[in-house]
């Protein structure tokens, strides 16, 4: 009897895993800073954004590490835990990320290795190789998947960045199991020295178009307030960030029209500055 319960529970967990992270459950978390902006992050340089669009790694030359915890709808079984490392390697930067989602009866572990570099004066590009391992308890098979993603960052003007990101561009006819694909694009503008605003669109296979908009305002040089909106589930979000000497702390809250609040907390530690 117990195992019969686990099937619908696992399915619910799986569907909930799609609910907030945008359209694509296999995309890595954006960290609390990105989540506070409504997940608008593929054109805004930052530690966690670099794993959403690997082209942003080129704009993050510091040797850093970080951890992130996302408590989805305040249900511990839906929590995501991530750890990441960025290593500058001359002109390009390398990134490594590990993430775990779920609980004992359904979990998805993923890890990725990314590289981003400035290719032209105004264009950066990056790629990331991803490995996913999905585990469902009892008699269901475990699922292993490997894919890649790529991104571009274009400095269209002095204060305008455009980000483009493609996840899993491989046709599914080459796979035994379908893995979702997605395209994401967005533009961000620094409206003043301390005010950023951006918007994104994302289309993932099997889903409708999702639109997002968000902002980040620097109250002081070290304190940030963030807000955003996503058309998918009409989700509003806001967040706060505080930068210390070598430590960045961020927290965000995102609402879901039916399922409640998702809280994200992240910490980034600067090991060695490039400058």
């Amino acid at each position: 009897m117990y195992s019969l319960h686990k099937i619908p529970v696992s399915l619910i967990v799986f569907s909930l895993s799609l609910a907030l992270a945008g359209n694509n459950p296999h995309n890595f978390t954006a960290g609390a800073s990105g989540a506070g902006r409504g997940s608008v992050c593929i054109m805004k340089p930052g530690f966690w954004s670099s794993f959403t669009n690997p082209a942003l790694l080129a704009s993050f030359p510091d040797f850093s590490t970080g951890i992130n915890y996302e408590n989805r709808f305040n249900i511990s079984e839906l929590g995501s835990r991530s750890a990441a490392l960025i290593i500058p390697a001359g002109k390009p930067s390398l990134g490594i990320i590990y993430s775990h989602f779920g609980f004992s009866h359904f979990s998805r572990q993923s890890c990725g290795i990314a590289c981003g570099s400035l290719l032209w004066e105004k264009i950066s590009a990056g790629v990331q190789i991803d490995y996913f391992f999905e585990k469902v308890s009892e008699k269901y098979d475990n699922v292993h998947s490997v894919t890649f993603e790529g991104g571009l960052l274009i400095a269209a003007a002095e204060n305008i960045n455009i980000g483009i990101h493609v996840f899993n561009p491989l046709p599914n006819s080459l796979r035994r199991r379908v893995l979702p694909s997605s395209i994401r694009t967005g533009a961000g503008i620094m409206l003043s020295e301390n005010l950023f605003a951006g918007a994104e669109a994302e289309l993932c296979t099997g889903n409708k178009l999702a639109l997002r908009a968000g902002f980040e305002y620097g109250l002081t040089n070290d304190l940030f307030v963030r807000g955003g909106f996503s058309s998918r589930y009409s989700s509003f979000s806001f967040g706060l960030g505080c930068n210390f000497d070598r430590l960045d702390l961020d927290i965000s809250f995102a609402g879901h029209e039916r399922l409640g609040i998702t809280t994200t907390f992240s910490l980034v530690f600067l090991v060695k500055s490039s400058g």
Binding site: I183, A201, L203, K208, L209
Partner: peptide, 19 residues
Amino acid sequence: RIDCKAVRESGSRGYLMSQ
């Protein structure tokens, strides 16, 4: 490119993004 299409009577929607 982003294309969105809506058919009023049936309510069907179409979306496309290409790079």
